[in-house]
């Protein structure tokens, strides 16, 4: 287990380093000169030169990269060239919103997806399965933005169950925070719930026809135990893998969902900074997103090895 953890951790660090290179190079490959953009209309060469000097844009590329890397590692992402607010503060404000949204969506999706998936497998060929399958099909085919708009129209505007948009920090007022987050999380989680449901259903069907489930029944265990422990634990191995693969979609879905519900998260920050060619902010946003992605994948892998002892003991997984 220890060795597995170490090698997996090493892999993640290398990936992260590569991510910094890509982010750094990517931003510089964008068309347009930031110094000139900053100088504005006048385009006074002296002013442009001053700006270049101020942001170190005259240095050799690798010097710039090294500075960027060391600063990033200490959490210093520079200041926004538009607002002069430290990028770190911008990120710190946006990160909790997006994290909360994604976690809530993931929780909602896992709960709904696993429950309905198990139900569909156990009640195979009965109305409950058709209902669950229909739900999954809808969840997969309805785009987020449409679902979000409908949710706002009906649940917020027509019936006033949830607030339509905006955000209240959790620490300020937890109840209001959750009320604002409920709809976006539901909307963002629906697609993932459908994916999880379908995967759970099919791997539960596989598990229920295995020899070890037959053994569990022959031992005189309750059907609850047979399904909920012996079959489900094995099915979850596949489900966790699928969820891991879907997290990218969840993060990009969060961007769209934040726009719809006007949440001040990473999505808003990203879109704003790209439109304003605010390089330090873009770099910070992308780097943090990449880091989050790598960390989540690491967690998924660890979870995977917790569920499946064959990986834990063998200690070498690609």
């Amino acid at each position: 287990m220890g060795r597995y953890l170490l090698s997996r951790l090493g892999q993640s660090l290398v990936t992260l380093l590569l991510a910094t290179v890509v982010v750094f190079a990517g931003v510089r490959a964008l068309p347009g000169d930031p110094a000139r953009a900053l100088a504005g209309e006048e385009n006074n060469p002296a002013q442009v030169a001053a700006i270049r000097a101020k942001y170190g844009l005259d240095d050799a590329v690798w010097v710039q990269y090294w500075r960027y890397l060391t600063h990033s590692l200490t959490g210093d992402f520079g200041t926004s060239v538009r607002t002069n607010i430290p990028v770190r503060s911008l990120l710190a404000g946006a990160l909790p919103v997006t994290m909360e949204l994604s976690l809530l969506a993931l929780t909602v999706a896992a709960l709904i997806g696993v429950l309905t998936g198990v139900l569909a497998a156990v009640r195979r060929g009965r109305p409950a399965e058709w209902l669950a399958n229909g739900f999954a099909l809808l969840g997969l085919s309805v785009p987020n933005f449409w679902l979000g708009l409908m949710a706002i129209l009906w649940l917020s505007v027509a019936w006033s169950i949830f607030p339509a948009s905006g955000h209240v920090p959790f620490l300020e007022d937890p109840a209001a925070n959750l009320a604002h987050m409920a709809l976006p999380a539901l909307v963002l989680g629906t697609g993932l719930a459908a994916v999880i449901m379908r995967q759970t259903r099919s791997s539960m069907l596989d598990a229920l026809s295995t020899d070890y489930v037959r053994t569990a029944r022959a031992k005189g265990l309750r059907e609850r135990t047979v399904v909920g422990i012996h079959a489900l634990r094995n099915s979850l191995i596949v489900v966790v893998t699928i969820v891991g693969l879907q997290l990218g979609a969840l993060i990009s879905g969060a961007v769209v969902t934040e726009r719809i519900f006007a949440l001040p998260g990473f999505g808003k920050l990203t879109v704003d900074s790209v439109f304003q060619r605010d390089y330090p902010v873009i770099q910070g946003v992308v780097l943090v997103t990449a880091t989050a992605y790598i960390v989540i994948n690491l967690l998924v892998d660890l979870l995977y090895s917790l569920i499946d002892p064959r990986i834990r003991v063998r200690g070498d997984v690609a």
Binding site: T210, Y212, T215, A218, G220, H230, R233, N234
Partner: peptide, 25 residues
């Protein structure tokens, strides 16, 4: 039936490689 299975009638199956649950000790 559940009270009988495993307690009064017990089974051993043909496939030892797959008849035990892989994720439990």
């Amino acid at each position: 039936l559940r009270a009988v299975r495993g307690k009064e009638i017990a089974y051993i199956f043909q496939e030892p490689m797959t008849s035990l649950n892989p994720v439990f000790t």
